[in-house]
Amino acid sequence: MATTTVNQNASLASIIERRRESILAEWLREMSGATRRSDLMKESELQGQCGQFLDLLARASGTGTNVQAAAYEPLREMLLDISRVRVQKGFTPRETAMFVFSIKRPLFTAIREAHGKDPVAMAEQMWSTTELLDSLGLYTTEAYLKSREEVIRRQQEDMLELSTPVVKLWEGILALPLIGTLDSARTQVVMESLLEAIVQTNSRVAIIDITGVPTVDTVVAQHLLKTVTAARLMGADCIISGVRPQIAQTIVHLGINLLDVTTKATLSDAFGLAMHRSGFSFIRSDKKEKRDN
């Protein structure tokens, strides 16, 4: 049985080789319908990709239909490359997969003409070719998704890094403006960077501003309390600022105890308190001058 498969595939390779030009032309015409994006990719580039695909397919199909086999390595690599480029250019998954699937019609036409008088051999070869092309198409889609996931993961990591800046407001006063939802992983990063900054700058007061935190549930409150407690253990006071009315209501309804933590409505209130605690005071000079004049 295995030998017949090999024979059939060898004939697939020979069919492709014999009718390369007509298959290629028909394939390109097939793709020029809904799935070709002339705005994203040049005609000549696509033509090059198609030609390369056909050559690699002809070479690999001689060894069997197992796409994971070593003979298919160059073909797989090429599809991976195509998927990655198409993710960056903004193709949809459908458009990317159709690159492989749209070869079916021209290839089947060629097979039909080659096996004109033997319907059994034709059906068998069509089946094996369908299987082969399907698995190649699925592989392309998988590669497409993988490239996408990579992009998402990298962006997530970037966001994690970017979203936890610790800023020094005054000598001995730090602020940590939080933006976005707090989950366990982010809180860990926030906590660590705040505590490190406290040690580095020798700050006695840290203000955690939650103006940019959309919702505070029990988990988020727990994380905030942990951060405050850890800072206290190191000898720094924490003030939570930017508590919106909605969040204040939620906190009370959830029965979260924030009594041990100083909370302020705005960052400026918190900053005023921090200055007072550190022994600084402000004098507004321009007002006094006006009164003197």
Binding site: L195, K226, A231
Partner: peptide, 21 residues
């Protein structure tokens, strides 16, 4: 910082102990 985080994770907030930098 690492010690502080560990203690908090262990649930020990050392209430009643005063701390300084």
């Amino acid at each position: 910082p690492a010690v502080a985080i560990t203690l908090v994770e262990l649930g020990m907030s050392l209430t009643g102990v005063r701390t300084a930098l």
